[in-house]
Amino acid sequence: MERADRRRELVGWLLVAPSLLFMAFFFAVPIGAFLLRSVDNTDLVGAMPRTMAEIGGWNGQDLPDESLFMALGEDFTALPDITAAASLGRRLNHNLTGYRSLVMRTFTGLRRHEGPLGREALIAIDKRWSDPAHWRVIQQERSWLTPLYLLASLDLERGPEGIRTIPPERRLFVDLLVRTAWISIAVTLLCLVLGFPLAYVMASSGPRLSSWMLVLVLLPFWTSLLVRTTAWIVLLQRNGLVNQVLERLGLIDAPLTLIYNRLGVYIAMTHVLLPFLVLPLYSVMKGVGGDLTRAAAGLGAPPSTVFRRVYLPQVMPGIIAGCSLVFVLALGYYITPALVGGPRDQMIAHFIAYFTSTSVNWGMAASLAGILLLMVVVLYAALARLVGLDRLKAR
């Protein structure tokens, strides 16, 4: 029997091995490699090997000695082309604004320079090399790993005295993270308020009516997310159907602003994510028998007590599963806020897309994605502690 059990277990692992390998190579490894970009500094260190080796002994206050200037000149001269110089300048510009122009000007100046590559030559090309602040940037980034992007994602930076908060006019990402979490929480609560009665009616109805209601809940999955979001633009615009109906009913005198603001984001995201709460909640409610509720009512408990003390604990796993699913999906939403929201309603996914495709700052994109992943992990850990890991896995 033991050999048979081991054989069955081996067969089971062999059956799932292709899926596990596929998930590892095409899901886990790419995500891990992308998240590594949030602390990776190999491009900068590899582009300036001589300077990075010399600058470790500099005191960080006085002007560097001649050997360090020579090392910097040799590194710039060794750059293969202007594209590599532009990439280096763009990377250093994340630390200190204006560094890209400094690198480009130095690179082109050294190409025309004849003679020793020392202090006088570099300062003659650009006087900013006489400022120790520009050298401190290189000294801070001499390691293969950098905290630059992670600090920037939390509105922090490294200064001469250590890590500090960036000036208020440059702060962005902490408010962005709070905004993303708040919108996700609000949408989750709206889905719960609307989805709980719907799931209860579906679970309490007869087979025929329940089947039709289930089809209506599944119907949005058969329509593109982009189409559903665009439909809300048509409905909620100033001359849209919603405003026209309200005006004809005499409820409003002028069209309401229902789109390109936070309200439009709430409406559209709630509509899109509502089935993700209804379906797991309906599956749990369908398996809850009525014996306990009838027994509680027969013993004299009022309806509110029956619901709170008997029925709600039985459907709580479905509530937790549905709310966690909606919240996690809402955290990474991009298309809906981008189409129906205003500039102050964009979520963290919008900036991840911006840093990936527009500014080509993969470090910031990976850092923001890592923070988003951390929020999901924290949520899962909290749920595991609240309802138990075994029950969470079962759901």
Rank of each mutant, 00 (worst) to 15 (best):
A369N: 12
L339K: 00
Q244G: 10
S357M: 06
S101I: 06
L273V: 01
V340I: 11
H94N: 12
F221Q: 07
E120D: 09
S357Q: 12
R105A: 05
G298W: 03
T42V: 12
H94V: 08
T356R: 08
A24W: 11
R6I: 12
R105G: 08
I259H: 04
L277R: 10
T358D: 03
E141A: 10
S67T: 08
F76Y: 13
G206R: 11
N93D: 13
V306G: 05
E114H: 11
V137Y: 00
V178D: 15
E169P: 02
I335L: 00
F307Y: 15
P132L: 09
A199F: 00
E141M: 12
M347Y: 01
S359G: 04
R179C: 06
P220M: 02
C191P: 09
H113N: 06
R395H: 07
R294W: 06
V360C: 01
L150K: 02
V193W: 04
R262P: 04
N261D: 10
S359H: 07
S87A: 14
W362G: 11
N59G: 13
L151V: 12
P147K: 01
D155W: 00
R391L: 15
H350W: 05
E66A: 13
G289D: 08
E157N: 07
A231V: 12
F307P: 15
L10Q: 13
L277Q: 03
